Measured scan of single mutants.
Amino acid sequence: KKSYVLIKVKNPKTKETHTIVVPEENLEEVLKALASQPNVKVVDIERFP
């Protein structure tokens, strides 16, 4: 059974918020990819039960 993680990201320029759902096993690479985006800020990470 896969567990999923909900990542909320915000664009500081446009103030838009997006929610991305990723499998927990991919969380680290997704966070690394997001960290390299200049106008993306991770605001929240939630685990799915």
Rank of each mutant, 00 (worst) to 15 (best):
10 K>T: 15
47 R>Q: 06
41 K>A: 10
15 K>S: 13
15 K>M: 13
37 Q>G: 04
26 N>T: 08
27 L>A: 04
30 V>F: 11
29 E>K: 11
18 H>I: 13
44 D>G: 13
44 D>K: 09
6 L>K: 09
29 E>L: 14
10 K>D: 06
34 L>T: 01
21 V>A: 04
43 V>K: 02
30 V>D: 00
36 S>L: 14
12 P>D: 15
20 I>S: 01
10 K>E: 15
26 N>E: 09
14 T>N: 06
36 S>R: 10
4 Y>W: 12
9 V>F: 15
4 Y>S: 03
21 V>K: 09
1 K>M: 12
11 N>G: 04
4 Y>K: 03
29 E>M: 12
34 L>I: 12
32 K>W: 06
31 L>I: 04
25 E>L: 04
47 R>I: 10
9 V>L: 15
43 V>R: 01
8 K>E: 02
24 E>D: 06
44 D>M: 10
22 V>D: 00
31 L>R: 01
41 K>W: 08
19 T>W: 08
15 K>T: 08
23 P>I: 09
1 K>V: 10
26 N>G: 07
10 K>Y: 15
18 H>G: 05
14 T>K: 05
41 K>L: 14
22 V>K: 00
32 K>V: 07
41 K>S: 10
29 E>Q: 14
42 V>D: 01
49 P>H: 08
9 V>E: 00
27 L>I: 05
14 T>G: 03
25 E>Q: 08
5 V>K: 01
2 K>R: 05
48 F>K: 05
27 L>C: 03
6 L>A: 13
4 Y>Q: 03
36 S>C: 07
36 S>Y: 06
42 V>N: 01
14 T>D: 04
2 K>L: 11
26 N>Q: 08
41 K>Q: 15
25 E>G: 06
19 T>E: 07
1 K>S: 09
31 L>E: 01
23 P>K: 11
31 L>D: 00
33 A>L: 14
21 V>E: 05
33 A>I: 13
10 K>H: 15
14 T>V: 03
33 A>M: 11
28 E>T: 06
13 K>E: 14
23 P>Y: 14
42 V>F: 02
13 K>L: 14
22 V>M: 03
14 T>H: 05
34 L>P: 00
3 S>C: 06
9 V>M: 14
27 L>Y: 04
23 P>R: 09
49 P>E: 13
30 V>N: 01
28 E>L: 09
3 S>M: 14
39 N>K: 04
47 R>N: 05
20 I>G: 00
14 T>P: 01
13 K>R: 10
3 S>L: 12
4 Y>T: 03
28 E>N: 06
